[in-house]
Structure formats: structure tokens, C-alpha cells
């Protein structure tokens, strides 16, 4: 079985890494290639590069940023933001992405997932879902970087997206994003049990205990942003803490 992955996420805007709380109030957090290389050297298992402004502003990801990260990065790179068509995905893969994440465009037109899988294979296609708790354990999938409601059940959408061709689910809790309150484990359990593809937990991690809880809830990987960018943790520090807790990770 593969080891659970620790995946630093670089939210980018205009070629810089930014980080906000609950998708708002973005502030500068560094150079993407420099940060990606540093995380890889510290033991990161993969890097995710999201262009948070792309869908909102209606423009595609800067391929130049992807190429700059690719040139220095000896581990997998997932890229998302503003991917609407097979051609958009092809540009990102040509620039050096290994996987492409789609969100708003797949909500608007789920057939996109099948088109991407047919061209590049399911292992290249990540469905990114921004889920917000509406009431009880009912979650709604949001589009446009968390800015628009869809009325669609997030767990049913995860299952449908994998059936349509997605090879991985990047599951973000909008309520927990940037708060350090821990991953939304109920959401994670529900999605991990509903799909055959790997699930990446995102939103709310503060420390190693949150990651261990996510893996126990069925996550195959955990996305990390503010916990790393703020300098509170390093990837190797988290892995050491996880090992101490009995969670086997790649060292």
C-alpha cells in the first residue's frame, strides 16, 4: 500500500504564493518554485499548485509558473485553477504538471471529466471539491473558489465525478480552510467511503494529530498550506511527529 502523502499546497496569484482565511483576505507568502523546492527537500510527497484567482477572474493559469516549478521539482506536481477545456489541461501538462485539478468547469459540465480521462488517463484527472456544511452532515459543493453556491450535494458529486473519470478527489472543507480547527472528519469519512479513487483531505490542518486523524478517517493524502507557510511546522517535522504516533510515512 502507498504511504499516506503530505502535500504542501501553494495557492498562487500572479506568479506569487498567497494564503487567505476561508478563501478571503489573500496575502503574499513567497515564490512558488523556491517554496516547492524547499518543501520537496524537506520530504513533501507531492506539490499542489492552485491558481485561486483564475476561475474568479476568468483567465487561465500561468504556464510559466508551472514550468518554473517543474524545472526544480523531482516529485509529483498537481495544478489547478481555471481549467475549462481539454486544451487548458493539455497546456498545463505540457508545461510540466503531472495531474490537473478541475472544479467549477466540471460542476458546470461534468462530461469534461470523461473527456480529460479519455485523453490523459484517469490518473491525471483530479476533481477538486470545495464543500461547505449546510446543515447536519449535509454538505454543498461550492464553485468559483468558494464564491458561488451550486445546490449540489458534495458527497454525491464526489461519487459522480469519479464515475465520470476523475482519478483523485481533492476535498476541501470551506468551513475549516485556514482556520487550524482540524480537517472536517465527517465529510472526509463520507467521501472516502463513497469513492474508489484516492482522497486528499484539505482545509483546517494545524498539526500532526490532524493529519493522523485524516488518514484514520480514510484520506490517502493531506493537503497543507497555512500550517507550513506560517512556519509553525516543517514537512519533516510533521513526518517525524507522525512516525512517533505510529503513522508510517515516507522518510
Amino acid at each position: 500500500m502507498p504511504f499516506p502523502r503530505l502535500v504542501p499546497c501553494l495557492d498562487c496569484r500572479d506568479g506569487r504564493v498567497v494564503k487567505g482565511v476561508q478563501f478571503r483576505g489573500l496575502r503574499d507568502a513567497g515564490d512558488p518554485a523556491q517554496l516547492a523546492a524547499r518543501y520537496a527537500a524537506a520530504g513533501a510527497d507531492e506539490i499542489v499548485l492552485l491558481d485561486v484567482a483564475a476561475t474568479v477572474a476568468g483567465r487561465g493559469h500561468a504556464a510559466a509558473t508551472v514550468a518554473a516549478v517543474r524545472a526544480v521539482l523531482p516529485i509529483p506536481l498537481t495544478v489547478g485553477g481555471g481549467v475549462r477545456t481539454v486544451d487548458d489541461a493539455a497546456r498545463l501538462l505540457d508545461a510540466g504538471a503531472d495531474k490537473v485539478a478541475v472544479n467549477s468547469a466540471a460542476l458546470a459540465r461534468p462530461e469534461l471529466l470523461g473527456e480529460l480521462a479519455a485523453r490523459f488517463g484517469a490518473q491525471c484527472v483530479v476533481i477538486a471539491i470545495d464543500a461547505a456544511r449546510s446543515e447536519g452532515d449535509v454538505y454543498e459543493a461550492l464553485s468559483h473558489a468558494g464564491g458561488a453556491r451550486t445546490g449540489r450535494d458534495a458527497i454525491a458529486w464526489a461519487r459522480a465525478a469519479v464515475e465520470a473519470g476523475a482519478g483523485e478527489v481533492l476535498l476541501t472543507s470551506v468551513d475549516r480552510d485556514g482556520t487550524g480547527a482540524g480537517y472536517d472528519l465527517a465529510l472526509l469519512r463520507a467521501v472516502a467511503a463513497s469513492v474508489t479513487a484516492p482522497v486528499v483531505a484539505s482545509g483546517g490542518a494545524r498539526g500532526a494529530a490532524d493529519l493522523a486523524a485524516a488518514f484514520a478517517a480514510g484520506a490517502d493524502a493531506a493537503l497543507l498550506a497555512s500550517a507550513l507557510h506560517d512556519g509553525a511546522w516543517t514537512v519533516d517535522g510533521l513526518k517525524e511527529a507522525l512516525s512517533g504516533m505510529g503513522v508510517e510515512v515516507r522518510r
Binding site: 500500500m1 502507498p2 504511504f3 499516506p4 502523502r5 510527497d45 484517469a122 490518473q123 482519478g167 483523485e168 474508489t196 479513487a197 484516492p198 490517502d220 493524502a221 515516507r250
Partner: peptide, 8 residues
């Protein structure tokens, strides 16, 4: 999990 995506 299929696809297998990760370090083994």
C-alpha cells in the same frame, strides 16, 4: 484505491 497514486 484505483488508480494507485502515491509512494510505495
Amino acid at each position: 484505491r484505483v488508480p494507485q497514486l502515491g509512494w510505495n
